[in-house]
Design a protein around this nucleic acid. Structure first.
Lengths: 207, 207
DNA sequence: AGATGTGAAGTCTTTCACAGCC
DNA sequence: GGCTGTGAAAGACTTCACATCT
């Protein structure tokens, strides 16, 4: 295989493959073909093969892919073959949904700290995490936490992002509906589900 | 302007512009240039102008864009210049986050019905919505609801989707971490934040 | 002058078609 | 025979550069 820059779209699909493969894994099927995986995850078989080919290919011609091995390879590429500690800021409904979300552990994430402003919540333990006041964010850099999760109202998102960067996180997942900026060294991913929902009516067949 | 197919990426950016424009709108600034808007939303000015040009262009050369008019145009394109009724299925943490989410109203959505399985929740009123048992989903088609929102555990996502389609929704927003299929006439948008988070470690600068 | 609108160039991504291997 | 891996073609999207208008 020659060197190729890996398309960011390929990276985005890898977790989708992983999600499907884990389902198969639990069913004691040893192998899978690109065709079967394709139907399971809703992506074309040639797209799947092309994606894997960027990494040299993981399968055996005429046979298919060994599920366990494929899972391992994808996790390694995404660097989720080890645990990443995250800190959650904002323990409202969304924050609690994140705390309770089973998917996180499966992808190798743990929530190691949670912060909120509300005196009612501070000190309480939710899903095994004690909620701390936001001012404790400053001490975060002592704890080896790589990722910050922002689940606060949009007005505070930028300030919290700044504090997380200050505290040394290398990546941020932002749920607040705001555009926030961070230094280049920090990677940020924003999710605002209103933005996605807002596109839906455009596609609706209005009879 | 000649006919052009409008890129789906352009459609995705329109709500981002809208989010920025609404911020400006509240500040009593009458006009905005692509350059200023660009900085506010984090998208290149030429990209913004190109996007608008697919619809014929909304600005005045040498001057800029009239904010109110631009907001109106974007809402019209996205068909969110009128109210869309939605039905929420699953009132756990995520569902409640959706119920409380202020952004929805701003984009022209109302939650007109909410369903859950939990006897503890059924009958209760949360954010002005009375929670109904899931079996009531069948009667949904009487209520002029266009969009279903799925916020149930992944095992039930497909079944609920089928029921929503049966009940006549034209679009679905799915938060369950599962690939679900619907008839072609129904548009589905899925959000699984674990998928996005899973990409983050790949981009982290590990020193 | 200053900002938009847009063809054309450039880049990235998907799709195809088939060689290569089990 | 069946399925993977991959160069090449096709397609989609972004960026550029500048003509155009106020």
């Amino acid at each position: 295989m020659r060197y190729h820059k890996i398309p960011s779209e390929t990276i985005k699909r890898l977790p989708v493959y992983l999600r499907g493969l884990v389902l198969l894994c639990n069913k004691e099927v040893g192998r899978v073909s690109s065709k079967v995986l394709a139907e399971l995850v809703g992506i074309n078989p040639w797209q799947i093969r092309k994606d894997f080919s960027y990494f040299g290919g993981f399968g055996t011609r005429g046979v298919g892919y060994e599920i366990d091995e494929l899972i391992g390879q994808i996790k390694k590429i995404l660097k989720i073959d080890r645990v990443h500690k995250t800190a959650l800021v904002g323990v409202g409904h969304l924050g609690q949904a994140v705390l309770a979300y089973p998917g996180f552990v499966g992808y190798g994430f743990t929530i190691a700290a949670a912060y909120d402003n509300d005196p009612e919540k501070i000190g309480k333990v939710i899903d095994n995490i004690r909620i701390e006041p936001i001012k404790n964010l400053k001490k975060l850099d002592k704890r080896d936490i790589e990722i910050g999760i922002i689940a606060v109202p949009f007005q505070f998102a930028q300030i919290i992002a700044d504090q997380l960067v200050e505290a040394g996180v290398k990546g941020i997942l932002n749920f607040a509906p705001a555009y926030i900026t961070v230094p280049k060294k920090v990677k940020i991913i924003s999710i605002d589900f209103a933005l996605d929902l807002a596109c839906l009516p455009y596609y609706l067949n209005s009879k």
